[in-house]
Amino acid sequence: MSRDEVQQTGPGVPRGARTILDETGIRRTLMRIAHEILERSEDPDQLYLVAIPNGGVPLARQIAGNLQQIADLRVAVGILDTTLYRDDLTSTNERPMLRRTEMPSAVDDRVVLLVDDVVKTGRTIRAAMDALMDFGRPRAVQVVGLIDRGHRELPIKLDYVGKNVPTGPGENVRLLGEFGGLDGRLAVVIERGTSDLAMEAVGGGEIG
């Protein structure tokens, strides 16, 4: 944590990229989402935040922190890697790096909130739901997305949305920043001329 505090500059925004949600914007959005979660949850004690790495991890931790601040509610935070559940593994030659999975408590009868940074096709959420079912039988599964880009390819809707960002061809949206914890400075940027695939490779940073 102390190392993060030293770093005052925050993430560098690449050339040609435009910030659509800065650090303050992200914090406000996650606070609003935390309020919405409380408002709509019948039994907040049963909530379980499950982050999809890497981008979902700092967001889920922030939401958990907000819930504690607002309602003195301690919500478990899990991390669920979806790589081994992807539907495109057999069609590609490259094997993506696996990421950490850490599910500290059981999902049975819990209301699981899957947290991802950017939701587009819905395929990652589909993979996450399959992965989740291997850990038990949640009472309900809901989805939190900081950014909804549209372009859905599967019948999946977000229950909590930070910001809708319709994008055109050749545009990409991603979360930049220190994926280490609450102190990391985050920003969501939109950029042109890079394929999604290339961006995914760039985004595959280590989580703390």
Binding site: D81, L84, Y85, L98, T101, D130, A131, D134, F135
Partner: peptide
């Protein structure tokens, strides 16, 4: 290291 975690789950299987 990540594969080891699958062996600790209740359902020790992934669809990969």
């Amino acid at each position: 290291e990540h594969m080891g975690e699958i062996g600790e789950r209740e359902v020790k299987k992934v669809p990969t």
